[in-house]
Amino acid sequence: MWDYSDKVKEHFFSPRNSGAMDEANAVGDVGSINCGDALRLMLKVDPDTETIQDARFQTFGCGSAIASSSALTEIIKGMTLDDALKVSNQDIADYLDGLPPEKMHCSVMGREALQAAIANYRGEVWSDDHEEGALICKCFAIDAVLIEETVRANKLSSVEDVINYTKAGGGCSSCHEGIEEILTKVMAERGETFSPHAVVLKEENKPSKLTNLQRIKRIETILDAIRPQLQRDHGDIELVDVDGKTIYVNMIGACAGCQMEAQTLQGIQTRLMEDLGEFVKVVPSRAGSYVRAASHV
């Protein structure tokens, strides 16, 4: 039995704002029948103020899917559309006093329904490349699709790489067999053979020609260049420390605890490596949402 919080149970047993809404002028349908959850979010938006006057939902899904839908409608009622777009899946999970890692996707579905509904209201087409795979790392709630894509995109070849890039496998380590299977498969695609004993020959770090101060300033400049993109998604990044090859950062706002945080960090790391011309590792200094997720294990 799942370790659901009292809040989840309460919202499941007595869902708020459930049922169809005839006067809705914004509707978002999302979900995955194969995964057994699907959500229709219906909003009544005041055209003058773009305020959400009422919100209702219909959900085909498990206890936490229904509770997440209920929580979402409660959170966004009375918000302007712009404010509602700032609601993250973590906000939904927090509202419910947390969700088990296997169930975080229920809160993601809530956020996506919200985006879809607002896009529908604004006459935009909302599409999502979101794809879910089997959960591999239970400590940090990371699925096979994300690991596979990261391994492919970055030509990773060891479990250690996967931990550094995605955090998957960095906790209890029970999933290392699963990660090795993904490595074996993806490396075979590029004609390599996975070997757990291979000495990982990291590109030997070229001696940095920059002084420490110059290097840190350079990192700041690169981060500044990335910042506008993050801010567009209502997030931000802050440099905390540089310790040799490890760059510690803080993810702020919507970036903090975002399901895409690992991918975002990885993108930033790639950019830093390209610009600095050396191998570096970007690490969130505050463990953030994943620690919360891990605490449910």
Binding site: S32, E112, S127
Partner: peptide, 14 residues
């Protein structure tokens, strides 16, 4: 069931 349930509700992604 909604008439033709598969069509009445067709989420954006599957």
């Amino acid at each position: 069931p909604a008439e033709e349930p598969e069509k009445a509700f067709a989420p954006v992604y599957a």
